[in-house]
Design a binder for these strands. Structure first.
Ligand SMILES: [Zn+2]
Ligand SMILES: [Zn+2]
Length: 785
DNA sequence: GCCAACGTTGGC
DNA sequence: GCCAACGTTGGC
């Protein structure tokens, strides 16, 4: 095994990343970018990024998301538009040296001399050293092209995309492309530094707007190879007929050792923009440790070749799919593949038992990871498995440092702690750091610390900048330079009724979008609430100027002052759409800095509730509850530890987890074997209503910790035990038709107990039909009555 | 130390 | 070929 200096590897990695940089791609319009990705295995991928930051990794996706644009002639790999008739003309070109624009008559692809070549008329499709003089005359007004940079093929230099020359622009301005629109005139780089190192000099490819494409880019090369034209040019054939190159490098003619016929056309030195196939590959297997050899390359067979083989087999045997077994699925397995299979299975099974309910279920479509998925309108940045699909058995296995030991039980994975079981979050790799001794502050909830939702393309990683902490009602727009990204601060006058509770003044601040459409889309809220404390859990929040929105709890974090912040996301019932009609990505996140202070982007609407200084016992409570959500546990195995009715209750809990409950109803974290469902929306008529199911499925409904009288109509005709999901859901639905009794104004309001103190009649029914404000008993107690 | 971003790999 | 998502790390 080789050990390798990790800094050296980092350096090479850096270089590799630069090579895969996004390049402006005005062919698709202003703001579009293109990237070529060469895998270590040699597989070549092309990605495009829209001006809004959406990344497309296939033509299918690109076409789907741009239905208004005719992309039928768009050649995905090359990034150019194809014009078939023109291409045909090109092939018929009598001259041997031509490289012709395959995309558009009005667009130039490299002429062979330094003659002006951009902006010539349709029909000037065959430019050669001999024919190029035609080109400028057609338009007449075209200025001479700036001098070109050529490379001496005898002294090839590694070129870097970073060495971009200043942009050129046609004096005639951009030409209309096939889409019928005028490409932007924004300057584009010319990439002279990554030109092909051709014996026959070729300038850059000129784009529709007069800018240039890298002549030696893989895109162009692919296209030309595809059309059989590189050979035409480089082998200087006299008949100009497309043909496959036979023998050495198509460009320099040198022998290419180990090349297979039809597989390679250019030698590595003629492919300056393509990462040469890595003959020696170091894989990182630990901190600063490297081993030689690829995972996927066994016995010299690259992944690409294996894939090719696989697909060949698939086509030959279409019925194979049915008999496909995940463990023996390789149709071309031979003895040499066994090791590879072992590794594959390892990776495959590491995080999925493939048997548990989570492994078998479908994407929830709601969690942040689902929202990130392109199929749900996300931008594919997180690329993680649905939260709900994290394996119940193996989401947490494998930890080289052994820190996945449960800090309470010392067991490796199991925790039969009821509270832990309820807090279903599995730790993902990025959560590992928080396992070792649970944090006293910081985010505790599913996944990473909360990040800004992506209502707009997020800042590229390289340009990310740290937001300054936002804490006390401080939502000044930090990135005011970004158009369309501005928000204005607006305090909402949110009053709170403390009728049944401690009276503290709370300050709310709500950020709005510039158009005032703050609630049109999704937004996020950080509610400071003593989430863990049942005694404090019955605060009543009254939001003014706020429409009811669906709320889902994302998790909570502990502020340095001991407050537990519950982070929830609200979503409009309206179908949120941005200006382009694309659904807005909602991932309900807010970012926390390392000190646990939330960081939220400008497009996030935040409700900030300040509860003031916490009492001492509040802090204690916080410490108790914080670790719960980050617990590592195996639900499946944990179940075995729980006997009798507790196991039954657990099973109900598990079923409920997989069920879509009526909106706003969420499970509550409770310290003993008991199931609590809480109406968590403070704007619901059922706010602070709790359904509690205890051992034996006995249940009780409470409003602000006051149990409903057993004579309440809600209990009528209902089973005495709630043992099934349907029974629970039926009850919740019935509850939704009710409202919490408003009580009646008691004593006169006091300045320190703003705004109103309400009291209830002794025999208050607590829950009344939604059309009523208060129950009969409380109505009787109204001052006027 | 942490995690958002993304390179890479496996499945189909 | 596309899609899903695992595993790593640059930038903070
Ligand atoms: Zn999900
Ligand atoms: Zn599983």
């Amino acid at each position: 095994m080789y050990c390798f200096n990790s800094e050296e590897m980092d350096m090479s990695r850096n270089i590799s990343r630069r090579r895969h940089a996004w390049l402006d791609w005005p062919v698709l319009g202003a703001g579009w970018k293109r990237k070529e990705v060469i895998r270590w295995s040699g597989v070549h991928d092309v990605h495009y990024m829209s001006p809004r930051g959406h990344v497309f990794r296939s033509k299918l996706k690109l076409v789907k998301s741009n239905k208004h644009t005719d992309l039928r002639k768009f050649h995905y790999a090359s990034g150019l538009f194809l014009d078939e008739s023109d291409a045909m003309k090109d092939i018929e070109c009598p001259d041997g040296g031509a490289l012709v624009d395959p995309s558009d008559p009005s667009e130039r692809i490299g002429s062979v001399t330094s003659m002006p070549s951009w902006n010539s008329a349709p029909g000037d499709f065959c430019e050669t050293p001999h024919s190029s003089t035609q080109t400028p005359q057609r338009r007449g007004s075209s200025p001479p092209r700036p001098s070109q940079t050529f490379r001496n093929p005898l002294h090839p230099t590694k070129a870097s995309p970073l060495g971009l020359s200043p942009a050129r622009q046609s004096a005639d301005g951009p030409l209309p492309n096939l889409l019928g629109r005028v490409p932007p005139q924004t300057p584009s780089p010319t990439f002279t530094s990554i030109q092909l190192l051709a014996p026959t000099r070729r300038p850059d490819i000129t784009m529709r707007n007069g800018s240039s494409l890298p002549n030696g880019s893989v895109a162009v090369k692919n296209l030309l190879l595809h059309q059989g034209r590189i050979e035409c040019s480089m082998a200087r054939s006299t008949d100009c007929q497309p043909r496959r190159h036979v023998g050495g490098c198509a460009k320099c003619g040198s022998d290419i050792p180990g090349i297979e016929a039809g597989e390679e056309t250019l030698c590595p030195s003629c492919r300056p923009d393509k990462k040469p196939k890595q003959r020696i590959v170091f894989r990182k297997v630990g901190q600063g440790r490297w081993v030689l050899g690829r995972t996927s390359e066994v016995d010299g067979m690259t992944q690409q070749r294996r894939k090719r083989k696989y697909w060949t087999m698939q086509k030959k045997r279409p019925s194979l799919q049915d008999a496909h077994d995940s463990d023996t699925g390789d149709c071309f397995k031979d003895e040499d593949d066994i090791d590879d299979d072992e590794q594959s299975r390892n990776r495959r099974h590491r995080r999925a038992c493939l048997r548990c309910a989570a492994c078998l279920r479908k994407d929830c479509g709601k969690c942040d990871f689902c929202m990130d998925k392109p199929k749900f309108g996300g931008s594919n940045k997180k690329r993680q498995k649905c939260r709900m699909r994290q394996c119940q058995n193996q989401a947490m296995v494998r930890e080289s440092t052994g820190t996945n030991l449960n800090h309470l039980t010392g067991k490796h994975t199991l925790v039969s702690d009821w509270r832990a079981l309820f807090s279903q979050w599995h730790l993902l790799p990025h959560q590992k750091g928080r396992r070792k001794g649970m944090p006293s502050t910081g985010w505790v909830g599913p996944g990473r610390r909360r990040k800004a939702s992506r209502l707009k393309p997020s800042r590229p990683r390289s340009k990310r900048k740290r937001r300054r902490p936002i804490w006390e009602g401080d939502f000044t727009d930090e990135e005011g330079g970004d158009d369309g990204d501005k928000v204005k601060e607006e305090d909402l006058n949110v009053k709170k009724s403390y009728g049944y509770n401690h009276g503290k003044t709370r300050n709310y601040s709500l950020k709005k979008d510039e158009d005032g459409d703050d609630l049109e889309g999704a937004f996020e809220a950080a509610l400071t609430s003593d989430f863990s404390d049942q005694d404090n859990g019955d605060d009543t929040f009254v939001f003014e100027n706020v429409e009811p929105y669906e709320l889902s709890i994302q998790g909570c974090f502990t502020a340095p002052n001991g407050d537990v912040e519950m982070v929830a996301s609200f979503q409009s019932s309206l179908n949120s759409r941005d200006q382009t009609g694309e659904p807005l990505a909602v991932d309900g996140t807010g970012e926390l800095s390392s000190n646990g202070i939330p960081q939220l982007s400008d497009d996030v609407v935040v409700v900030r509730v300040d509860v003031g200084a916490p009492a001492e016992d509040d802090v204690t409570e916080v410490d108790e509850v914080t670790p719960v959500i980050t617990q590592i546990f195996s639900l499946a195995e944990g179940t075995q530890d729980i006997q009798g009715s507790e196991a039954d209750l657990l099973q109900l809990l598990e079923s409920l987890r997989r069920t879509v409950l009526p909106v706003h109803w969420v499970g509550r974290d409770v310290p003993r074997p008991m199931l609590q469902l809480l109406q968590c929306s403070k704007r619901s008529t059922m706010a602070d209503t709790t359904l509690q199911i205890e051992l034996g499925f006995l249940y009780q409904i409470s409003v602000q910790n006051q149990p409903l009288l057993l004579t309440h109509p809600l209990y009528e005709g209902r089973p005495s035990r709630l043992s099934s999901v349907s029974q629970v859901v039926a009850l919740l639905l019935d509850l939704e038709r009710l409202a919490v009794c408003q009580g009646h104004p008691g004593l006169a309001p006091r300045p320190d107990r703003e705004p109103v103190l309400c009291v209830r009649a002794a025999a208050c029914q607590l829950l009344v039909p939604a059309s009523q404000e208060r129950c009969d008993k409380c109505r009787d107690s109204l001052p006027d009555a």
